[in-house]
Amino acid sequence: MNVLHVIWQSAVVVLGSGLLGLVYKGIDRKLAARMQGRIGPPLRQPFLDVGKLMVKENVVPRDAVPWLFHAAPILAVVASVTVLLYLPLGPFPPVLSGRGDLILILYLLAMPAVAMALGGFASGSPFASVGAQREIVMMMSYEFPLAVVVVGVVWRLATLGFSPAFSMVTVGSTPLWGLVGPLGVLGLALLFLCLLVVTPAELSKIPFDIPEAETEIAGGLLVEYSGVNLALFYLADAVKTVAMGALVVALFFPYGIASPLGLSGGWAALVDQLFFFVKVFAVVFVAVTTVRVAMARLKVDQVARGFWIPVTAAALAGLALLVLDKVVMG
């Protein structure tokens, strides 16, 4: 591993993911507004939001634990950004290829939510504590189906002889759809649907925005955050959106269009990179934008029951179908 390459590639990913996340946020807000018959904010609104938060007062509540209150947003940004270094972004392998696998990605994806819960508890506010408790319950609910989806895909890859199966290079360069039989395709489709349901929960978006629930608990775990600390949580959310989209793409749609178009060299990389951005945005649009426009917020017990019973059952059914596919197809 060339250290200089890692440094400049990491810098590109860190800066690029922040910009891309904010651009996606802008498009998401514009499209959501259009679907609701509103004009919506300009596309650059998320950038303006961050800029404005930077010049706002950074209030620390009276009963807060100051060091933890300030550390939580930083931890959220660090976890969100570093997870991208392990994910394939377009035609390029992960920056830290060979230095971390899919299990590490799952843990890093959970960290921003843990950081938000810590920040909520450290706020010393009743609304923030309720929001933090909801965040933890929600994490306990969606992590298991998410793990089943990942294990399903990886296990089938391993049975087909790909190794190391948990490597993102293996996962991101091996579309499973064409390698399995009809039962396997059905199983993969079920796992994909489960991941689409988990995505808005992982990002705390409607109908799973119960930890924040502005109209109910006034922003929940973020209620006491303001200024630059809130800007950091905002950025962490933007980057995590890109990471989640990239994970879905890597697991289920690691396809490029350069080869079918007969392109090669630099043009092929450019076209595949742009296609990757489109795929990530398509995932965000389907799993977040349309869902949050069409649905209302669920209650926390509905979320827990929903993820633990129907979504987990669907994920396990998908896994079972992949096992059957292995038995039938070999």
Binding site: S10, V77, V78, V81, T82, L96, G100, D101, P164, L232
Partner: peptide, 20 residues
């Protein structure tokens, strides 16, 4: 079937923390 390098993650986490 898996692997990870804690030191590499830690080094980059420190760098991202400094940037943040």
């Amino acid at each position: 079937e898996g692997f990870w390098s804690p030191l590499v993650w830690l080094a980059l986490a420190v760098a991202v923390t400094a940037l943040t």
